[in-house]
Every structure is written in structure tokens, then in C-alpha cells.
Design a binder for these strands. Structure first.
Length: 108
DNA sequence: ATAGTGACTGAAC
DNA sequence: GGTTCAGCCACTA
């Protein structure tokens, strides 16, 4: 499978996330129609390595909990979320259910 | 090709 | 809302 294309698609979707909103890895994978949640996370990892401008801090797991709290230089993601007006408690999005943004409804 | 691992998820307890 | 288990797919050894 063309992971390069997949990564680009993921970046595009993440860039479409409105401010003050969040989404899940699985939701993105599902919206793209292929790939898996793990691939999205991996895409974020390589994205960080490629120093893209993709707001990965708006992407959390299905529980609304922030992933990799102290890996890949992502511990400040919670700070970024609070900066955008998203309430974060103990590394987790409080109103995740309300702030959740489904990419499949706004897809590309 | 096989095994281990991981920014994940859903079901079962 | 935690922990555990089984899928999931790409990457590395």
C-alpha cells in the first residue's frame, strides 16, 4: 500500500480540523476508507520527523486521552489544546464528546 | 518469512 | 472508568 499517500491524506484531514475541536486516529483512518488507527499514529510520528505544520495536538485516542505524553516531544500538546480553549484534565480532553469532530462529515 | 513493537480500537470483565 | 485480550497494519531486526 502507498503509505506516503496515506500520510499526505492524514495531514490534509488533520489540517481541516477546526480550532477548538479534536478527533480520533480511528476516525481519520475510517474517513480515509483505508489504513488503521496505528497507521495514523505512525503518520504523526513521521510527520513530526518531517517537521510538518500539521496540528497533531488535535488528534487523540478514542477515549479523548492524549497519546505519547512524553514521547516525540509531544508533552506540550495538552498545553496547545488548552491554549485553543480545549479543557484538558490529567492529559485528557474533558469535553471530548462535545469537541469531537468527525472527519467523515467534512472530508476533503 | 517470522517475531516484536507501537501517537489505536472495541469488546469483555 | 480502569484493565485485559484480541485485531489491526507498517516498520525494524
Amino acid at each position: 500500500m502507498d503509505t506516503s499517500k496515506f500520510n499526505d491524506e492524514v495531514y490534509e484531514v488533520v489540517n481541516l480540523i477546526p480550532e477548538g475541536r479534536v478527533t480520533a486516529y480511528g476516525a481519520i483512518a475510517k474517513a480515509l476508507g483505508y489504513g488503521t488507527a496505528r497507521m495514523v499514529g505512525h503518520a504523526m510520528s513521521v510527520m513530526d520527523h518531517h517537521q510538518k505544520t500539521t496540528p497533531a495536538h488535535r488528534v487523540v485516542n478514542s477515549s479523548g486521552h492524549i497519546s505519547a505524553p512524553d514521547s516525540g516531544g509531544g508533552r506540550w500538546r495538552a498545553e496547545m489544546l488548552e491554549k485553543e480553549g480545549i479543557e484538558v484534565k490529567n492529559g485528557k480532553v474533558v469535553k471530548f464528546r462535545e469537541l469531537f469532530w468527525d472527519p467523515s462529515t467534512e472530508i476533503i
